[in-house]
Design a binder for these strands. Structure first.
Lengths: 110, 110
DNA sequence: TTTTATAATCGTAAAATTACGATTAATGTA
DNA sequence: TACATTAATCGTAATTTTACGATTATAAAA
């Protein structure tokens, strides 16, 4: 029925999937790229850089924020976004561990 | 509406998002875990390990296969799945570069 | 050849995602 | 105070994802 059934999996599996899912759209990668380049960035600037409407970008920002990867600080009538260092490193590590756990085997498949 | 508009983004953004999306569900992380542990694995064994129906697991396997992260070799009336080393390393690298491009800034946000 | 086992595919339904325009809330400016 | 700007939220529609049971195709076994 389209539900995620998240209860059935381990916390780590859910965490990794959560980070990965947040990264699972080109627009959100593009947003992160802008933030990574400029260190910090006003929402409007991000909208200008992307081929998407303001409301759509805002939605993507919300998803990145909900995954914890970015944070937004209110600055007057603008909102300044930036990478959340702590969570970013956590995502890097959990995903890194997953990828590193592969040890090239002599026999590729059966 | 509801379309991905992938044409508007760079090939690299699309590629990273593609890998991340494939990893964006706990069931698929769980599947990969099984494959990483056992090196190679019969489809049926994966079904036994997961709290999902055979058809649902098959669907998740298909998505991982379409992203290139795994491959399936027919072995009699069974199908043996394993990590696709080349693509796995490519995903590791592209995602790794993204994560590493963050350099902790002195000023966290505005 | 018939039966059994394995795994993909089909059909279907519910839910989530993506996208946009319009509206709203909040803050700064005239 | 009235106006303008900024960004979130609402409402809506199309698409995609998730999930399952049922069916199908294939190959091994009886």
């Amino acid at each position: 029925m389209g539900l995620s059934k998240t209860e059935q999996f381990t916390d780590e599996e859910i965490l990794i999937a959560r980070f990965a899912k947040a990264l699972g759209h080109p627009a959100r990668i593009a947003i992160l790229r802008v933030l990574l380049e400029r260190k910090a960035c006003i929402c409007g600037d991000i909208v200008d850089e992307l081929p998407l409407s303001q409301s759509t970008v805002s939605q993507h920002l919300k998803e990145l924020k909900e995954a914890g990867l970015i944070q937004g600080d209110i600055d007057g009538k603008k909102v300044c976004y930036c990478i959340n260092e702590q969570v970013w490193k956590q995502a890097q590590e959990t995903l890194g561990i997953l990828f590193q756990s592969y040890t090239a085997s002599d026999t590729s498949c059966c």
